[in-house]
Design a protein around this nucleic acid. Structure first.
Lengths: 198, 198
DNA sequence: CACGCTAAAACGAACGCTCGTTCTTGACAA
DNA sequence: TTGTCAAGAACGAGCGTTCGTTTTAGCGTG
C-alpha cells in the first residue's frame, strides 16, 4: 500500500467522521457510527487513528484550515477592499463552504460550531482555535489598515479593533445561518454594509 | 416540603448541572458528575428530573432567558439609542453575565456556546433557540427602526437587516471573548463603534 | 410530653447496556 | 510461504437509570 493510498484512506475516514460529527457532535457520535459510515472495520479505523480523541483533533482542524483559506484571500495583493466588501466576501465564503463540500460531503460550518464547544474543554483544540482565530482577525485588521491608509477610516480608529468587529460580523452570520433558518447572505450583507458604510 | 422548597432544590440541581455543562459540555459530563456536584444522591436528582435529557433541556434555557433579558432592555421606553450604543450595551451585558452569576456560579456565555452545538442536533433545543434568537434580532431591529425614523440611517436601509448585523456583532464578541483571550469589551466596542459610526 | 405510626424524601448499590478499544482470525497479494 | 491488512467478536469500564431500603419530619394518641 503506497503512502498516497494510506493518506487517501485516512482522509476518507476523516470525511466519514466529519459527517457524523457535524450531524451529532463529537461526543454523541460513537466510534461504531464512524466505523459504519466509513464502510471499514473497527480494526481498520484504529490502524489509522490511535483513538477517538485523535480523530476529533484531526477533524477539528478541517473547519479551521477552511476558514484560514477564506480569510487569507481577503487582502489580495495590494488591493484595498472596504470593510463592507471584505465582510461580504467572508459571508459569501461561509455560504460557499456550507454547501456540502464535495470532497467532504459535510456542511463544514456545523463542524465549526462543534469545534467552538470543544475548544472550551479541550486544551489542544482550544490552542489551535485561538491561534487560527488570531490570524483571521489579523487578516481583517490588514483590510482595515489599508482602508485607513486610503483615508476612508478616521485616523483615531484602531485597525485591530475594527478587524475584531469584522471577524465578529462573519462569526455572527455563520451562527445565524445555522440557527435562524431565514437568515440569508444577501440580507446579512446588506445589513452589515449599511452598518459599515460611511 | 413546600412548593418553594421543591423549586429551590430543583434550581440548585440545575445550577450544579450548569456548572458541569459549562465546564465540560452536555455529553461529556456524566450524571455521576452532576450528582456529585449537587451534593445529593442519584435517586434524589432523578426525582426532580426524569432523565439527563430533561436536565439538558432545562439548563439550555438558562442562557436563552438571560439573553432575552439583556436584549429586552435595549429599546428602553421611547429612547432611541444609536446602533453603536446598543451594541455597546449588549457587549457589556455579555461581560456582566459572564462574570460567574452569583445565583448560578457559572459563566453563562460558555453555556451559550454549548447550547449552539446542542441546537444543531436536538430539535427541541433548536426550536427554542431559533424562537429566542428571532426575538433578540427583533429587539435590535427596533433600535434600527427608531434610529432610521430619527433620520440617522439612510431610508433605503432595511432595519431588520441592520438588526441582524447588530445581533451578529454581539454574538461575535461572546465568542471572541471565550476563544481569543485578549478580546476586551472596550476594544470590541471601539471597533464596532468605528464601524457603525456615520 | 412521649411515643409510635405514616408518608415523603433521600440514599446508593446494582443492573443492563453501550462505549472505546484490543486482538485473534482469515484472506489476499507478492 | 510469508507478510500485510482488514474483519469483527470479545472485553472491561463506565454510562444512565432503577428500585429496595433507610432516614427524616410531622401528626395523632394516650
Amino acid at each position: 500500500m503506497t503512502d498516497d493510498d494510506r493518506a487517501g484512506r485516512r482522509a476518507a475516514i476523516m470525511a466519514a467522521a466529519a459527517g457524523c460529527f457535524a450531524a451529532d457532535g463529537f461526543h454523541t457520535t460513537s466510534m461504531a457510527d464512524i466505523i459504519r459510515a466509513s464502510g471499514l472495520s473497527a480494526g481498520a479505523v484504529y490502524s489509522y487513528f490511535r483513538s477517538k480523541e485523535e480523530l476529533i483533533t484531526a477533524v477539528a482542524g478541517l473547519p479551521l484550515a477552511n476558514a484560514e483559506a477564506v480569510f487569507a484571500a481577503l487582502p489580495a495583493d495590494d488591493a484595498a477592499p472596504s470593510p463592507a466588501e471584505a465582510v461580504a466576501a467572508l459571508v459569501q465564503g461561509v455560504v460557499a463552504r456550507a454547501a456540502d463540500d464535495p470532497a467532504l460531503g459535510v456542511d463544514i460550518t456545523r463542524l465549526a460550531v462543534q469545534v467552538w464547544g470543544e475548544a472550551l474543554r479541550n486544551p489542544e483544540v482550544r490552542g489551535r482555535v485561538s491561534a487560527v482565530y488570531r490570524t483571521l482577525r489579523d487578516h481583517c485588521t490588514e483590510v482595515a489598515r489599508r482602508w485607513q491608509a486610503a483615508g476612508n477610516l478616521p485616523p483615531e480608529a484602531r485597525p485591530d479593533e475594527v478587524g475584531a468587529a469584522m471577524l465578529g460580523l462573519a462569526q455572527g452570520f455563520l451562527l445565524q445561518r445555522l440557527l435562524l433558518d431565514e437568515a440569508t447572505a444577501e440580507g446579512y450583507i446588506a445589513g452589515a454594509t449599511a452598518v459599515l458604510a460611511h
